[in-house]
Design a protein around this nucleic acid. Sequence first.
DNA 1: GGCCCTATTATTAGTGT
DNA 2: TACACTAATAATAGGGC
Lengths: 202, 202
Amino acid sequence: MASMSKTKKPSQGRRKIEIKKIEVKNHQQVTFSKRRVGLFNKASELCVLCGAEIAIICFSQAGKVFSFGHPSTDSVIERYINGGLYLDPVNNDNNPLFIQFKQKFRELEALKQAEIGKAKGSSGQQVNDCDNHFWWDESIEDMGLQDLEQFMVSLEGLVKNVDLKAEEMILENSSSLQLSGVGPSGGQDCFPCGSVGEFHLC
Amino acid sequence: MASMSKTKKPSQGRRKIEIKKIEVKNHQQVTFSKRRVGLFNKASELCVLCGAEIAIICFSQAGKVFSFGHPSTDSVIERYINGGLYLDPVNNDNNPLFIQFKQKFRELEALKQAEIGKAKGSSGQQVNDCDNHFWWDESIEDMGLQDLEQFMVSLEGLVKNVDLKAEEMILENSSSLQLSGVGPSGGQDCFPCGSVGEFHLC
DNA sequence: GGCCCTATTATTAGTGT
DNA sequence: TACACTAATAATAGGGC
């Protein structure tokens, strides 16, 4: 019952715990380790059982990063980013879009000037300006006109650079392009698990 | 009212299964669903209990993508990429191109989220070009032709959206533009979980 | 996808090394 | 400090509907 006072401490076995932040640091770390392994194992099983591809990135509170991936963390992330990106391979031709883009930009600018009456003085290489608010973290849907315009300015500069670079490379035609991936710089601890997937701990 | 009369089917309870690919498709899908939810819940608990930040990306065999993230899938991925990859801190931080590039990445991420919610009708998107590097982490200067191409394609998607939004705003004459439910998409399959983290299903 | 019924598993807490 | 083992049980997930 409630009082098993002094004499002995029989193993009480697993007990129900509330799902809230564990404050006792030591306890938290133990739980983190155990549950992280459990999570990765579950993911591994899911991969095997169902032919899934899974990546898990896990930062501990202390900032350590652990990752799981099958077939690899990076490939899954890459697939995620590319796949979610709304690539429409059907109708993508560069030039018309860029022409439209520039035209829209001019229209926007004209509209803005008509409204406000004066230029806001944004220059072409807008970077970031607000400390407490990053405008690029909003989706376009949430952008106001001015935000949109700034966004376009940035985009235009970017497009220009990409364009220049592409042209340059096409002219030089191969040879000087190096795609060397960045080399590993930190020691990585990669331990194999019994099953599918890679477990990383950095 | 559960009539627990005579012909009760003695559910044999949970049964042990071998961890190997489930061939029966129907069975596999059921298992996938259950275990995926279980996995996400475990991750959620781990976040709460231990103050962890976790992202999970999960592709079903059919190519559907599901994701979990706390505080958000993308923020964790970004943190992973930035932390795990070796941005040359020497000059890149002051390189306008690089800064723009990083901005671009964030914008794309934000956009992607918007698109995931909106463009629900078109499903099959796949891009199968997986190298071992992250194209978005290189500055434009270091990009190869193929990277530039990929970058352009992404840019086009972005431009297209900016374009649409701009048009929309111009048409509405910027008087009372409040976005609201701009998307003509149908029901969303994003279900809130009881606990921390976002669950996405596309 | 959800519910029910259970058998199987994961994980907690304590102890020992 | 960190792991290995144990007991005890909370929670997951398999099979049917």
